[in-house]
């Protein structure tokens, strides 16, 4: 299986501190991978190295030729001196047609925003606009850094459904960072537990049982796992009535590794 992007023995040093080391990572077309880890564990740094924004100290990052990727940063601060409408923002750096912009905004649940000033948006609205912009160049790989922060509860639930629908429709692979462990467990094909290095990775259920994961997330783990199981049972027992098909064959079947000891 050809990976879209591969990092091998990646190490990153920022401001003299070793932030990441010995990270081996690959993502296949159509895969949904979630990175979890405590604050400061290097999740954002991993995503930023994948887009080429931070230089690696060791190891390499290689992309499939001509890979179309989109990135949603953890936050985007707009200087108040910069006037910028949402519509104009979606035009950067590649111009898009008005119809395409409107479709992307609608898909991200921000259809009413195109004329608003970027600096005036609330946190959740900004998050939706960033997602709309990311969808515009029809990515093969979507990198999302805590995409549901600031989204209201229904917004967050709808977000994960949208992501899964997007993957099913376009075959786009998704790598996201999240702190919402319970949702992550049900929405991902693979979970990576990061703390400077990859502590454990694999199928959500496997990871949730790994000692490394429990050591990091402690008491939250039981709840997360229960929820995960619940949603799975739910999906199978009630004929997928909430739109999640967990037996779905994604053509290029995602890797379901077993957790390895870090």
């Amino acid at each position: 299986m050809t990976a879209l992007i591969t990092a091998s023995s990646l190490g990153v040093r920022l401001g003299g501190r070793r932030v990441l080391h010995d990270v081996d990572f690959r993502i296949a077309p159509g895969e949904i991978v979630t990175v979890v880890g405590p604050n400061g564990s290097g999740k954002s740094t991993l995503l930023r190295s994948l887009i080429g924004a931070v230089r690696s100290e060791t190891g390499t990052v290689t992309r499939k030729d001509g890979l179309r990727l989109s990135y949603v940063p953890q936050r985007l601060q707009i200087d108040p001196s910069l006037p910028m409408t949402v519509g104009r923002f979606l035009d950067l750096p590649t111009p898009a047609t008005g119809a395409a912009r409107q479709a992307a905004l609608a898909e991200a649940g921000a259809g009413e925003l195109p004329a608003r000033q970027l600096a005036d948006l609330s946190g959740g609205q900004m998050q939706r606009v960033l997602l709309a912009r990311a969808l515009l160049n029809r990515p093969e790989l979507l990198l999302l850094d805590e995409p549901t922060q600031g989204l209201d509860q229904p917004g967050s639930a709808a977000f994960y459904q949208r992501i899964e629908a997007l993957r099913d429709r376009t075959g786009c692979a998704i790598l996201m960072v999240s702190h919402e462990l319970h949702v992550v467990m049900s929405a991902s094909d693979r979970v990576i537990c990061l703390n400077g290095h990859i502590c454990c990775e694999g199928h959500p259920e496997t990871v949730a049982q790994a000692a490394e994961y429990r050591a990091l997330f402690g008491s939250g783990t039981g709840g997360a796992l229960a929820l995960y199981r619940h949603e799975h049972d739910h999906g199978h027992a009630h004929d997928h009535d909430h739109g999640h098909d967990h037996n779905h064959d994604h053509g290029s079947a995602p890797r379901h590794d077993h957790a390895e000891a870090g």
Partner: peptide, 19 residues
């Protein structure tokens, strides 16, 4: 123009867009 604006908004968005 577009590249300058993108880089002004965010260096990371620029990198992701190949700028």
């Amino acid at each position: 123009w577009r590249r300058l604006l993108t880089a002004t908004l965010s260096a990371d968005l620029a990198f992701a867009g190949g700028i």
